[in-house]
Nucleic acid binder design. Structure first.
Lengths: 138, 138
DNA sequence: ATTCTTATTGCACCCAGTTGCAATAATAGC
DNA sequence: GCTATTATTGCAACTGGGTGCAATAAGAAT
């Protein structure tokens, strides 16, 4: 958990809200929505304001302690230990699958060649149907 | 402008707000943000409520009269006559480039093969650097 | 342990977008 | 052209997320 060290090293303070949020994201080792994080923190420390939570998440992201993945309809956070990757969320059952970082390489190449456009796909969240739900729907 | 006919055919009413909004999107023949649409409508008819505008846009989208493209940081609308495509917006100069519908085909294929996951990329908005800005930045 | 500095917090308010509901207006039937 | 029906609207209130600022507390120095 060198995250605390990272923050200290930058002259940032180790406050209770920061500790709680970082521990939660680390221990969960999973993808969390802002809502889940807010609910958890409020369960333990009701006096912590939501603005503090959003500011903390922003700070953790800036310092690369957590990664934030956002798409039109959902934003999720996960601990930096889990590395860079993209996410697929099943719109039926909610199942989340991580997938490899270079998934969009062909698209990036194609945009560069055809339009000279430089796009860096990072932490993309995609909605769709997982195998099981696709077959059930048939 | 068969859009009006489309709406009529479904028993939907041709109200003034709908006429104004649809005409604007059609005549602009361009990508418009919700804000631009709201400003325009308010300029002409100050009494039209923003909720009406959002509801109208939603309705036009459901009936495929306009297409909505959304990403984390921007939502844009354009007339259905312009067809399906994706958008690249330069994060420096704001320039917007349309690009072909099948851009994400390799990604869709790869997700299907590796994970059995079914994602349909439609109206994706990407942020990045256009050729000019990329070169200026060095 | 106390004091001081200033990073961090809580608060109260802002913003874009959404929703429930009663009031209004578009249109079908006369 | 009127009337009745009901789709649509305006309103007011709500949502998730964000911001400026005065109050608070972390941690350095004593």
């Amino acid at each position: 958990m060198s995250c605390f060290a990272t923050l200290k090293g930058k002259g940032l303070r180790l406050t209770q809200p920061r500790r709680v949020i970082l521990d939660f994201i680390h221990d969960k080792g999973d993808h969390l929505t802002a809502e889940e994080i807010i609910n958890y923190v409020h369960g333990k420390f009701p006096r912590v304001n939501k603005s503090t939570i959003y500011r903390t998440l922003e700070l953790l992201e800036k310092n690369e302690c957590v990664f934030k993945s956002e798409s039109m309809d959902r934003t999720i956070y996960h601990h930096a230990e889990e590395g860079h990757h993209h996410h697929m969320v099943c719109s039926k059952c909610g199942k989340t699958i991580d997938c490899e970082e270079d998934l969009f390489a062909p698209v990036e190449r194609s945009l560069g060649e055809k339009y000279g456009f430089n796009v860096d796909f990072k932490h993309v969240v995609m909605s769709g149907l997982c195998e099981r739900c696709k077959n059930l729907t048939g």
